[in-house]
């Protein structure tokens, strides 16, 4: 019974989130925080931050990703299915209803006039979104090349009506990223190896220095032996002993 109640609560919470977020994406995070973190306390604020990172790193709408994740945490696989369903159901119902009357609606002259204006706005909205996102990635030589190739590539494909799936750009970006990652790993490993080798070399050099100094000490001892044999006999014995010990 308790479990049933939790699942019901999951469903309605995400139904509400799906119903009241316009424009999707980041507008949803504030609403998710209010309901899921503050009101229901299903997850902490830190966990939400983690979920946002995960949602950014995986395909799909951020609200759907979040509902699946929280649903799983609260109610397992069933919970995740119910939360996800709750999140997408409002859109589904509203859009389905609109789609039924859309042709009739578009048949009205004044609606057509209005949509002649709206169709000019759509591209501008998407462009604005693109420019906003342009500010959000780190500009390196590689990232700017990736950006330009995708931009010019898609423009050419569209203008010349070339049959080439845009999906390949995303895939290519992923492959380049993977390649960069592997290069990084190899470079780091090589660097580590070189450092290790250098450390080893230093050690053997230090050993050689010690050996040399020991040998000198013995030589000195021998020299002093012959020069002042009787006087320093005791200390010579000591030195030789030291040399012998270290050798």
């Amino acid at each position: 019974m308790q479990k049933f109640k939790t699942l019901l609560s999951l469903f309605f919470t995400y139904f509400k989130i799906g119903l009241f977020t316009f424009g999707g994406g980041y507008a949803m995070i504030a609403l998710i925080e209010e309901n899921v973190v503050n009101k229901k306390q299903w997850i902490t604020k830190d966990e939400l931050a983690d979920i946002v990172t995960i949602a950014e790193s995986t395909p799909g709408p951020i609200a759907v990703n979040c509902s699946t994740y929280v649903g799983y945490k609260i109610g397992g696989v069933l919970g995740s299915a119910i939360a996800t369903l709750g999140c997408i159901l409002p859109s589904f119902i509203i859009i389905y209803a609109i789609s039924l009357v859309f042709d009739w609606f578009m048949g009205m002259t004044y609606v057509q006039y209005a949509f002649n204006g709206i169709k000019c706005a759509v591209g501008l909205i998407i462009l604005r979104q693109g420019f906003k996102m342009f500010k959000s990635f780190k500009k390196t030589a590689l990232s700017i090349i990736c950006f330009i190739v995708a931009l010019v590539g898609i423009l050419l494909i569209n203008f010349f009506a070339i049959d080439f799936s845009t999906v390949f750009f995303v895939l290519a970006g992923g492959i380049v990223g993977l390649f960069v990652y592997i290069l990084d790993v190899v470079k780091n490993r090589r660097k580590e190896k070189a450092e290790a080798r250098q450390a080893l070399n230093l050690n053997t050099e230090a050993d050689q220095i010690i050996e040399i100094s020991d040998a000198e000490a013995i030589n000195n001892a021998e020299v002093s032996d012959t020069a002042t044999a009787s006087q320093n006999k005791a200390s010579n014995d000591e030195k030789n002993q030291k040399g012998g010990n270290t050798l």
Partner: peptide, 30 residues
């Protein structure tokens, strides 16, 4: 998952591609 270094490196190159695609799509729609 999101903390793996590999995931973040791959995303770092996918993101500019996606931004380029969005700007191209927006321009094309205009």
């Amino acid at each position: 998952f999101a903390q793996y270094a590999g995931v973040q490196t791959v995303l770092k190159t996918i993101r500019p591609v996606v931004v380029g695609m969005i700007i191209a799509a927006g321009a094309y729609l205009v």
